[in-house]
């Protein structure tokens, strides 16, 4: 069995945190998820933790620092550059998607209305990422 895959999630909505964790629990493989409530908290964790996450998920709409701002900060730091960052949002607007990709997001995931759909999307994402490695 492989070592668990570490994910850092910045999400201000605890319901969404729960939905995310349910979806992740249905995935094959082991995932170790850490949740923060906003971008600033996420950045703090990233600067303190010695063990960096494999993936970062950022909600787009968060108080204090939104997903895109946080993404931009992450991409400024050499030691975080290699971590794929996913922007995760209710929104599906093309302008947000373009903006996220422009700032270096690995992908943009629109929050679906079914957990099973989220499972599918996450599965596709992790598969594509492990194929890259």
């Amino acid at each position: 069995m492989n070592a668990p895959i570490r994910c850092l999630i910045a999400e201000d909505d605890v319901d969404d945190q729960e939905i995310f964790s349910i979806a992740v629990s249905e995935l094959d493989g082991q995932y170790d998820c850490t949740y923060t409530l906003n971008g600033i908290e996420a950045l703090e964790r990233l600067s303190h933790d010695t063990l960096l996450p494999h993936y970062i998920f950022l909600d787009l709409n968060m108080p204090r620092m939104n997903g895109i701002q946080c993404l931009a900060e992450i991409k400024k730091q050499e030691r975080l550059l290699h971590i794929p960052v996913v922007i995760y949002s209710t929104s599906s607007g093309q302008s947000f998607i373009d903006d996220a990709l422009h700032h270096g997001a690995a992908t943009f995931i629109t929050k679906p209305s079914r957990i099973s759909d989220l499972v599918t999307v996450l599965n596709e994402f992790f598969t594509s990422q492990s194929d890259k490695k």
């Binding site: 319901d15 939905i19 679906p112 079914r114 957990i115």
Partner: peptide
């Protein structure tokens, strides 16, 4: 519409669940 989507999506997600 954007702000309406958020709670609605949750209604849908939890209803499905």
């Amino acid at each position: 519409s954007h702000d309406l989507k958020e709670p609605l999506r949750k209604i849908q997600t939890f209803s499905h669940l």
